[in-house]
């Protein structure tokens, strides 16, 4: 444990990257994911964009955990991972069911509930 602390302490003292850079990268990834989720029409691509957005939020959570020296951010990332797995499983099953009925997963053609 002390050896681990010593090595990490040396890593910490040579740190040259401000946490705000990580937050900026996270915002950039989130914006890219937002643009993808809004512009794509393939359902799988929209899902991939949503996964990208979730991952950018994870990055900002870990960055804040590093900034404040608190472990809670990493634990929240753990829960976000689990919820993302559940969401992917249910969403992909829904796409399989929709594809069986309509032979497409183009979201522009899923307009049965449109007014």
């Amino acid at each position: 444990m002390t050896a681990l602390a010593a090595t990490t302490a040396t890593i910490g003292t040579t740190a040259g990257v401000p946490v705000s850079w990580y937050l900026l990268l996270s915002a950039l990834l989130f914006a890219i994911g937002t643009a993808g989720a809004l512009t794509r029409r393939n359902g799988i691509s929209i899902f991939l964009s949503i996964e990208l957005m979730l991952n950018s939020v994870n990055l900002s959570l870990v960055a804040y955990s590093r900034l404040w020296g608190d472990r809670t951010g990493q634990i929240v990332v753990f829960f976000v991972l689990a919820v993302a797995a559940a969401e992917a499983a249910v969403g992909l099953a829904l796409f399989i069911a929709i594809y069986r009925q309509r032979r497409t997963i183009d979201v522009n053609r899923m307009n049965l509930m449109q007014w």
Partner: peptide
Amino acid sequence: HAAADRPLTGPLV
């Protein structure tokens, strides 16, 4: 400009 002035400690990692 949030800077990571806190060094990485053992309990965090």
